[in-house]
Design a protein around this nucleic acid. Structure first.
Length: 848
DNA sequence: GACCTGCTGCGGGATG
C-alpha cells in the first residue's frame, strides 16, 4: 500500500465512510491515469470518490507534502452553482485538515470579495472551485497560463446540468485551452497530461456526455465510465381525486386537491411541494395560509424571483428542521443536501422523467433511505401522466441532454476573451476550437468570418469603431483598448435575462424581483401577494418598486413570463403507450382505473386511439368548424404542426384559422367549412416533404429568429447591457439588437449569427426534429376521423386552454369552465357568448 | 375588479 492509499484508508476508517463499490472502482480508474465520466446521484459520496484518489495520487508523487509549500493549482472543480462551490469547499477542507495536509481550498465566483480575488491572483490554492463564467474570467486575465501551469485534474460537477446549454459550450471551450496550456502544438503528450472527469446524474446519453466533455482529440482508450448504480428505493404515488368525472377536465393549479395534499403534509416531518411556476408557488402558499393558518411560521416559499437572502434563510431553516413545508419551484432541484426532507409532492406534470426523479430524490436524501414522491394531477387527463411516469421510471427511461453545436455567439465571446488577455494566433486557436465537440464541424471559412467580425466588424459594421474590437499584431489577435477589455470582462457569460424590477420595503431591505409588465398594472395603494406576504404598492423609483405591509386578505398574485416546457419526448412516448393499453382495455394502473369513466366517455363520444391510429375529431359549433388533432407530442410540436396544417389547408382553400394547443393535441378553428376528408386523402398533408419551406411560410420564422437573435447579440458582445448598477434600458437593448438583425438580414445574408438565430428557433422553439419524427409516425398510422357533437374529454382541455388568458371578463376561470361544460354538455352544440371570448391570445394564434 | 401557467443559472475595471 502506498503512503497515499494509507492516508485515504485511514480517512475512510475514521469517518466510517460507507464504501460503495463504485468508490473503489473510481479510485482504481483514477489512479490508472484515466479520464471520463462518473455517473452518480447527489448524496452518494461522489465528491469524495474523486477527491480522495486525487489526494492519494498527489501524496504518492510528493511524499514531502506536509512541508511542501506553493504547489500551485492542482485541481480545478467546476460547478454550475455558486452555492455548490462553498459546500464542496467545506467538505474538502475538512478532509485536508483531518489528514494534516496544509492546503487551502478556495472558491472563485462572483460572490468572492474583490480582496480575496486579488489574493487568489497572487497566491493560488491547491484546489480551486469555480463556475464556468469565472473560469472564463480567469482566461481573460493577463498571464493566465501561469495560473494553470501545474494543473493536474479538472472536474466538472453536475455536467448534465451544463451539457445541452451554452454554459456547457463555454466549459468545452475553456477545457480546450486548459488541455494545451504550456505544451507546444507539435507535442502530442498533452492529450493525457490533464485528467478530466465529469460527474453526471443519469441521463439518456451518458456516453455522449463523456465525449462532449473530453473533446474530439482525447485518446478513446483513456476514457472510462464509472457507474455508481446506487440502489435508490423510490415510491411514487398519484393522488387520485375522489371522483375523476367531477374533477377538472382542464386547469393547471390543482388546488382542488389541497386537502389531500395537506393530509400528507401533516403525516410527514418535512415536505417539499414542487410547483411548475413561480406564480403557482405563490398561489399554493397563499391557499395553505388561508385554509391551514396553523402552518404560519413553519412554512416557507422558494423560487427564482425571491431574494437570495430569503432563499438562503429557507435553506438554512430546512437544514435546522425548523420548517414543516416548503412550496417551491425547480430552484430547489439542484444542490444543497436536504437531509430532513421525507416527502416530496409534485403538483402538476413534471413534464419529464429525469426532472421528476431529481425531485423525488430530494426526499430520503441519504444512502439507503427510501424516497417518497407524490404526484398531484391538476386536471383529469394529467393523471395518466402519473401512470406514464411510473412506467418510465420502472423501465429506466431518461431524457437526453443534447449538446449544443456551433454556437457562434459563445465562440465569438471566447475569442475576444483570449484577445483581452494573452492574445491568440489564428491557426492555433482554430485547431483547439475544432477539438471541441461543439465546433468539430466548424469550417475554416466560418472561422475566418468570425475573425473578420471581431477585427473589422464583418461586412456590414466595418465603419463603426464600436465593433472593431480586436487588432492583429505580429500575427497575434489582441485587444489593446482598455475600455473594450473592461466592457468585455463585464459581459462574460451566456445567461441573459429580462429586465426586472426589484421589490423593496419602504423601510429598507429587498424581497425579490418582479416583471415590469406586472408592476405597470399596479396603482399606488393596490395590494398584491408576493413572497408569501400581502403588500401594498407605494411607488416606483429607479427600477425599484417600493412596498409596505398590507393587511388586505386579497390581492393580485404576480406572474412571470418564462420558458414553456413541453412534455418531454420520452415521457410523451410512454404516455402514448399507456393510452394504447387503455384502448386495448388493459387496466392495471390505479390511475387508469380511476380514469375509466372518462375514457368510456371518450370512447362513446368519439374514439380511443390505439398506437397505430391517429385520431382527428371534427365538430361544428356556432363558433365555426373545429378540427382537433391528437399527436400527444408536447405543446411546442403541436404549435408548429397546427400552423403547418393550417397553412397546407389554406394553400388549397383560403381560410382563416385560429389555433389552440396543449401537450396532448391541437385545434384548428375556422369560420369556413373545411372538407377535411379531402385533405386526409392527400398523401402530402402530413408529409415531411417541403417541411422547412412550409414552416417558413406558415410561421413567422422571422419574428422567432429575431427574438432568438436578441440573446445571441448579447452573448456575442454586439450589444452592451451597461455597467453594473446603471443598466441600459431594456427597450434600447431590444431596439439595437433588432436593428442589427435587420441590417444583417438585408446586407449580409450569410451572417453566421443570423443563421444561428434561425437554427435555434427551429431547434428549440419548434422542436423541428421532433416534429419531423411525429409526422413520419402519423403518416404510417391509420387516420380515424370522428365527427362529434360536443367536445370530448380529449378536446375539452384544449378548447379551455384558449380561454385561459382571456382577461376582459370578471368571471373566474372556474365559472367559465363550468359554463362551458354546461353549455356544451347540456345544450349540445354552440355557444354564442364564447365567440367573443375567443380572441387570439398567447396560445390561440391567428392563422391565415 | 382582477390569480388562473410557464423553471433554473452567472457575472461585473483599475492606480501610485
Amino acid at each position: 500500500m502506498t503512503p497515499g492509499q494509507q492516508v485515504i484508508r485511514q480517512w475512510y476508517k475514521q469517518k466510517s465512510w460507507q464504501q460503495f463499490p463504485f468508490q473503489k472502482e473510481m479510485e482504481r480508474t483514477y489512479l490508472a491515469g484515466n479520464s471520463g465520466l462518473l455517473n452518480a446521484p447527489t448524496g452518494s459520496g461522489k465528491t469524495f470518490a474523486l477527491f480522495l484518489p486525487f489526494l492519494a495520487d498527489f501524496i504518492n508523487k510528493h511524499p514531502d507534502y506536509k512541508t511542501r509549500q506553493n504547489n500551485g493549482l492542482q485541481m480545478l472543480w467546476i460547478t454550475p452553482l455558486r452555492a455548490l462551490t462553498n459546500d464542496i469547499r467545506k467538505a474538502m477542507q475538512e478532509v485536508c485538515d483531518d489528514l494534516g495536509i496544509p492546503w487551502k481550498i478556495a472558491t472563485r465566483t462572483g460572490d468572492t470579495p474583490a480582496a480575496e480575488k486579488a489574493a487568489l491572483k497572487k497566491k493560488l490554492p491547491e484546489v480551486l472551485l469555480t463556475t464556468p463564467e469565472s473560469l472564463h474570467l480567469m482566461l481573460a486575465q493577463k498571464d493566465y497560463p501561469a495560473i494553470f501551469k501545474s494543473l493536474q485534474v479538472l472536474v466538472v460537477d453536475e455536467w448534465h446540468e451544463l451539457l445541452g446549454t451554452k454554459r456547457g459550450v463555454q466549459v468545452e471551450l475553456g477545457l480546450s485551452k486548459l488541455k494545451v496550456l504550456g505544451i507546444p502544438p507539435e507535442d502530442q503528450s498533452h492529450k493525457t497530461r490533464l485528467k478530466i472527469w465529469g460527474i453526471s446524474a443519469t441521463i439518456g446519453n451518458l456516453e455522449q456526455a463523456a465525449d462532449v466533455l473530453l473533446g474530439n482529440d482525447f485518446p478513446p482508450e483513456n476514457i472510462k465510465m464509472v457507474r455508481a448504480n446506487v440502489e435508490k428505493k423510490l415510491v411514487i404515488k398519484s393522488i387520485i381525486p375522489e371522483n375523476v368525472e367531477n374533477y377538472s377536465w382542464a386547469g393547471h393549479i390543482g388546488l382542488k386537491l389541497l386537502p389531500q395534499v395537506m393530509e400528507l403534509v401533516a403525516k410527514s416531518k418535512t415536505t417539499l411541494i414542487f410547483t411548475n411556476t413561480r406564480s403557482q408557488s405563490e398561489i399554493w402558499y397563499h391557499a395553505i395560509l388561508d385554509n391551514y393558518p396553523e402552518y404560519a411560521g413553519v412554512m416557507a416559499m422558494h423560487h427564482g424571483s425571491l431574494d437570495n437572502e430569503l432563499r438562503n434563510w429557507v435553506e438554512a431553516a430546512l437544514h435546522a428542521e425548523a420548517l414543516k413545508v416548503v412550496v417551491c419551484t425547480s430552484s430547489l432541484d439542484l444542490g444543497v443536501d436536504f437531509r430532513p426532507v421525507d416527502t416530496v409532492i409534485q403538483v402538476g406534470s413534471p413534464k419529464g422523467v429525469a426532472r421528476f426523479m431529481q425531485r423525488a430524490g430530494r426526499s430520503g436524501h441519504h444512502p439507503g433511505a427510501i424516497s417518497k414522491a407524490y404526484f398531484v394531477p391538476t386536471h383529469s387527463m394529467e393523471l395518466l401522466e402519473g401512470a406514464a411516469l411510473k412506467q418510465a421510471i420502472k423501465q429506466g427511461i431518461f431524457e437526453s441532454r443534447d449538446p449544443m453545436l456551433l454556437a457562434m455567439d459563445v465562440l465569438i465571446q471566447y475569442m475576444v476573451t483570449l484577445a483581452v488577455s494573452e492574445g491568440f494566433k489564428a491557426d492555433e486557436l482554430f485547431k483547439e476550437v475544432k477539438s471541441t465537440y461543439a465546433f468539430a464541424d466548424l469550417t475554416s471559412k466560418e472561422f475566418s468570418q468570425l475573425l473578420d467580425f471581431i477585427t473589422n466588424g464583418g461586412k456590414t459594421l466595418a465603419q463603426y469603431d464600436e465593433f472593431l474590437k480586436v487588432e492583429i499584431e505580429n500575427g497575434v489577435y489582441k485587444v489593446f483598448s482598455r475600455r473594450v477589455a473592461m466592457r468585455h470582462r463585464l459581459s462574460i457569460g451566456t445567461i441573459t435575462s429580462e429586465m426586472s424590477i426589484r421589490v423593496k420595503w419602504l423601510s429598507g431591505g429587498s424581497l425579490g424581483t418582479l416583471e415590469e409588465s406586472f408592476i405597470s398594472k399596479l396603482k399606488p395603494g393596490n395590494t398584491f401577494w408576493f413572497a408569501g406576504r400581502s403588500l401594498e404598492f407605494v411607488r416606483i423609483k429607479e427600477m425599484s418598486a417600493y412596498v409596505k405591509k398590507s393587511t388586505a386578505k386579497k390581492g393580485l398574485i404576480p406572474s412571470w413570463a418564462g420558458g414553456r416546457m413541453p412534455l418531454s419526448s420520452q415521457l410523451s412516448a410512454v404516455f402514448r403507450d399507456k393510452l394504447d393499453e387503455v384502448a386495448h382495455g388493459i387496466e392495471k394502473d390505479e390511475e387508469v382505473i380511476a380514469l375509466k369513466p372518462l375514457f368510456d366517455l371518450q370512447k362513446q363520444l368519439s374514439h380511443l386511439p390505439q398506437s397505430h391510429e391517429f385520431l382527428i375529431e371534427s365538430f361544428k359549433s356556432r363558433e365555426g368548424h373545429h378540427l382537433l388533432f391528437y399527436p400527444f407530442e408536447g405543446r411546442l410540436v403541436h404549435e408548429g404542426m397546427a400552423s403547418l396544417l393550417a397553412y397546407r389547408i389554406s394553400r388549397v382553400k383560403p381560410a382563416s384559422f385560429s389555433l389552440a394547443m396543449n401537450d396532448y393535441g391541437f385545434e384548428l378553428l375556422t369560420d369556413e367549412d373545411v372538407d377535411i376528408e379531402q385533405f386526409l386523402e392527400d398523401a402530402d398533408f402530413f408529409s415531411i416533404e417541403g417541411l422547412l419551406d412550409d414552416i417558413q411560410h406558415s410561421l413567422n420564422a422571422n419574428e422567432m429568429a429575431r427574438r432568438r437573435f436578441r440573446d445571441i447579440a448579447h452573448i456575442g458582445g454586439l450589444v452592451f447591457t451597461g455597467y453594473p448598477g446603471q443598466q441600459v434600458k431594456n427597450k434600447h437593448l431590444q431596439a439595437s439588437s433588432s436593428l442589427l438583425f435587420d441590417v444583417f438580414s438585408e446586407y449580409e445574408p450569410d451572417n453566421l449569427l443570423v443563421r444561428q438565430a434561425y437554427n435555434e428557433a427551429l431547434a428549440f422553439q419548434l422542436e423541428e426534429f421532433r416534429m419531423r419524427m411525429a409526422l413520419q409516425r402519423i403518416v404510417k398510422q391509420n387516420i380515424i376521423l370522428k365527427h362529434i357533437d360536443r367536445p370530448t374529454p380529449f378536446a375539452f382541455p384544449i378548447m379551455v386552454d384558449s380561454l385561459g388568458r382571456e382577461k376582459l371578463t370578471t368571471e373566474t376561470m372556474e365559472d367559465r369552465i363550468g359554463k362551458m361544460a354546461r353549455q356544451y354538455g347540456a345544450e349540445g352544440v354552440g355557444i354564442e357568448q364564447n365567440k367573443k371570448q375567443r380572441k387570439p391570445g398567447v396560445t390561440r394564434k391567428k392563422g391565415f
